[in-house]
Design a protein around this nucleic acid. Structure first.
Length: 581
RNA sequence: GGUCCCGUGGUGAAGUGGAGUUCACGCCGGCCUGUCAAGCCGGAGGUCGCGGGUUCGAACCCCGUCGGGACCGCCA
């Protein structure tokens, strides 16, 4: 398959079984070692690896020259086998070297040493960075993941449909990239933040099962796990329950994981949003480590300690064995962190060698309370116990953050712990100005059927048929069963404080087609960059993207973005403001 | 929009107020017949990101600015 008119083999594939064969390989000079004029070794590299070529007629090749070597595979001399090299038992002898292209010395070594080179330099010369084994591996893992996802979706009768990149601007959600219209000066397209609108319309259109490996664009600040452009497996299904969607997506995720790692993960476990918050304090729990939040509210029901008395929710975590390493400075740091999030304070207690509690507040806690505390948190000498008393949301959030700060390993480390987080609340928080609830996900999520009666009386308690997929504490994606009936949609809009007229104005173009027979449907989308990064052992998605942007949104290789020419602006009917001074 | 960290030959580092910026890798030249990110000898290569300030004196301290990174906000 890899043979061409110029080569017979890939260099990294040559083994003892090829001994005696005349072969041609093509690639780059990884290194050259000269021993006088009669003998030189040239390591030739292609994307499969490196093979040693023995040259005895003094060819002047330098690092990264592109060469073609024709020679005979032979066993290495006794004592010169290189066990660190997959091809280390053989070498190419009687070599004829053709220089296909000379090369400037590269700005950084094309090997693992470049892992220490400043990322900006790697990005400036990304074509050289990608020549390295690490990037080759990452991009090939990514290709395998894409391919496995396609196969898994097709095996389940999903139809790949491409949706447009030039779309109307939509009222809510992430900031959009805008593209000026030449034919309608003053009007703009938006680049899609997701194919949400189109995929739901494809359900109305009877496609039944849609998927797309879709490019999505959001003009929000970049991070280790966020780029302007990213890829999602985007899917939507008709006539389904939540379980149908979770099963279909799980199949794609497991196929992708198996393709990347060689191992199929076990069935993905599930946890409700409420349990996730209660036990881990976050809606994207990292299940790889313990330190779970422990309920203490009732244990301090009649406490004398003012900070705990009457608190709606008291919880604690046990940072096992961390008492010694956490000195006063670090504990103050944790307290500051807790206060920054919004807690009134943070109670810490160290378990002493005799099982007593060392803490500024120990004297306020009765002997019974101290004993119960130690029992519930399984405290043993050397442990550090942290307690927060506040309303339920704050207690969970603060301890969830501290738990991650204190215990969370790098995202790629250890086992892969996939988890579906289900039953997200339909509304999260309230609009500061109107006092109306804000949608937890988006306003088209289907409310949980058991909670419909609470809609008007206790909206914040209404759960949604909305779910997230989480891997090692990273949110991979989310989805929901949608609302396909207008009366239910109206109730949700009303709860959000959106009038019928406003709803029609803002979302009419989306909802009106539903009047022509929208089937019950639901779907999901998950980020392929994030999944690939974790499966490739990277903690930054830039490492699995061929040409990513920097944190400020620029590309050091192409210098994008660049100012337009005056004639481009004129054609588009656009005048720019002077740069801020 | 905010908090914190980093900018020293091509690359990675050292130098935190005082002599001529130091080292390794790479690069160039020479030597070398079994090395393997070879070895030995020699050489070139720097506006210490940029601008201003403090000082007798600044790579080093201060202010600003640009670039990069981590995080918060933001990402329905």
């Amino acid at each position: 398959m890899s043979a061409t008119s110029m080569r017979t083999h890939m260099s990294g594939e040559l083994r003892s079984e090829h001994i005696g064969q005349a072969v041609s390989v093509c690639g780059w000079v990884a290194s050259r070692r000269e021993h006088g004029t009669q003998l030189a070794f040239v390591d030739l590299r292609d994307h499969t690896g490196v093979v040693q070529c023995v040259v005895d007629n003094g060819v002047d090749v330098r690092s990264e020259f592109v060469i073609r070597v024709t020679g005979v595979v032979r066993a290495r001399l006794e004592g010169t086998v290189n066990k660190n090299l997959p091809t280390g038992e053989i070498e190419l002898g009687e070599c004829v070297v053709e220089i296909l292209r000379t090369a400037e010395p590269p700005p950084f070594p094309i090997d693992a040493r470049a892992d220490k080179v400043e990322e900006n330099t790697r990005l400036q010369h990304r074509y050289l960075d990608i020549r390295r084994e690490r990037m080759q591996r990452n991009l090939r893992v990514r290709a395998k993941v894409n391919s496995a996802i396609r196969r898994a979706m097709e095996a389940q009768d999903f139809v790949e449909v491409e949706t447009p990149m030039l779309v109307p601007s939509t009222p809510e959600g992430a900031r959009e990239f805008l593209v000026p219209s030449r034919k309608e000066p003053g009007s703009f397209y938006a680049l899609p933040q997701s194919p949400q609108l189109f995929k739901q319309l494809l359900m109305v259109a009877g496609i039944d099962r849609y998927y797309q490996i879709a490019r999505c664009l959001r003009d929000e600040d970049l991070r280790a796990d966020r780029q302007y452009e990213f890829m999602q497996l985007d899917a939507e299904m008709s006539f389904v329950s939540q379980d149908d969607v979770l099963e279909a997506i799980s199949e794609a995720v497991m196929a992708a994981a198996e393709a990347a790692t060689g191992e199929r993960p076990p069935a993905i476990e599930r946890i409700t949003w409420h349990d996730a918050m209660n036990r881990f304090g976050v809606d994207k729990p990292d299940l790889r480590f313990g330190m779970e939040l422990t309920e203490l509210t009732d244990a301090f029901a009649s406490t004398e300690f003012k900070a705990f008395a009457g608190a709606a929710s008291i919880k604690g975590i046990n940072a096992s064995g961390k008492a010694e390493e956490m000195g006063r400075n670090k504990l103050d740091g944790l307290t500051d962190r807790a206060k920054k999030i919004g807690a009134k304070g943070l109670v810490w207690l160290k378990v002493g060698a005799d099982g007593s509690l060392d803490s500024p507040v120990a004297k306020f806690l009765s002997a019974d309370e101290q004993a119960e505390l130690l029992r519930r948190l399984a405290g043993v000498p050397g442990d550090l116990i942290l307690i927060v008393a506040d309303d339920w949301e704050m207690t969970c959030e603060v301890l969830g953050t501290l738990r991650n700060d204190l215990g969370r390993p790098p995202v790629w480390q250890g086992p892969y712990r996939y988890v579906w987080v289900t039953e997200f609340p339909l509304f999260i928080g309230r609009n500061k100005e109107t006092g109306k609830p804000k949608p937890g996900h988006h306003p088209f999520c289907r409310p949980h059927p058991d909670d419909l009666d609470k809609f008007e009386t206790d909206p914040m308690a209404v759960r949604a048929l909305a779910y997230d997929l989480v891997l090692n504490g990273w949110e991979l994606g989310s989805g929901s069963i949608r609302i396909h009936e207008s009366d239910l949609q109206r109730r949700v809009f009303n709860a959000l404080g959106i009038s019928d007229e406003e709803a029609d104005k803002k979302f009419g173009f989306f909802l009106r087609p539903f009047e022509y027979g929208a089937p019950p449907h639901g779907g999901f989308a998950f980020g392929i960059d994030r999944l690939v990064a974790i499966l490739a052992g990277e903690e930054n998605i830039r490492e699995v993207i061929a040409f990513p942007k920097t944190q400020s949104g620029s590309d050091p290789m192409t210098n994008a973005p660049t100012p337009p020419s005056p004639s481009q602006l004129a054609e588009l009917g656009i005048r720019t403001l002077p740069a801020k001074v």
